[in-house]
């Protein structure tokens, strides 16, 4: 297992154009990031393309990392997920009203961001468990499968606006729970 400090160190070296560090980061993280791409895209060939884009972006944008307040694995996971979702949306009907997913926010590290870096899987799972199962499922679907409001509304057979109201309420309850 590679620790947070080790991954931070590798990213710092990649910033200095160290190819060995790049290769080491690939060994340590590619299975995790490929898992994320595959989960979103559900297609091996596309996930492989997405993963290539992810590591190309890591090499080119490593200098953006230290300034943005993310823990290193979150930065990598968010990058992989966003690239995979962009690809997913590009594949779907061009009439989709959501054209892209966000770039990573750029901000200076804050005590709040540092504190949440310690939050783990159990915490978010426990808080999702406090939601109605269908709503927790919608949040997971949006994050892990890149589902849009339209996808979610269709899957749960509710009007789009109802889905949005549900989801926004779920987010607020989730945050309440997570900040407890």
């Amino acid at each position: 297992m590679t620790t947070r400090a080790e991954i931070e160190d590798l990213i710092a070296r990649i910033k200095l154009r160290d190819r060995d560090a790049f290769s080491a980061l690939y060994s340590a993280t590619s299975a995790k990031l490929f898992g994320v791409c595959l989960r979103v895209l559900k297609n091996r060939a596309e996930a492989e393309e997405a993963l290539q884009d992810v590591y190309v972006r890591i090499w080119k944008r490593a200098d953006a990392y230290s300034a943005n307040g993310y823990s290193p694995m979150t930065w990598l996971i968010t990058l992989a997920r966003n690239i995979a979702i962009d690809r997913l949306r590009a594949r779907k009907a061009p009439a989709e009203d959501i054209d892209s997913v966000p770039d990573l926010a750029a901000s200076t590290p804050t005590p709040e961001a540092e504190a949440v870096a310690a939050s783990d899987r159990r915490r978010i799972d426990a808080c999702l468990d406090e939601l109605d199962p269908e709503r927790a499922d919608a949040v997971r679907g949006a994050y892990l499968d890149g589902e849009s409001y339209r996808d979610l509304a269709a899957r749960h057979d509710v009007p789009l606006n109802t889905m949005r109201t549900w989801l926004r309420r779920s987010l607020l309850r989730l945050r309440d729970c997570l900040s407890r």
Binding site: K32, G35, V36, Y70, S71, M73, T74, I77, T78, R81, L104, A105, A113, V116, A117, S119, D120, R121, R123, I124, R140, Y143, L144, L174, L178
Partner: peptide
């Protein structure tokens, strides 16, 4: 982002 990343 930090919180959802745990879901990955």
């Amino acid at each position: 982002d930090e919180r959802f990343a745990a879901l990955a």
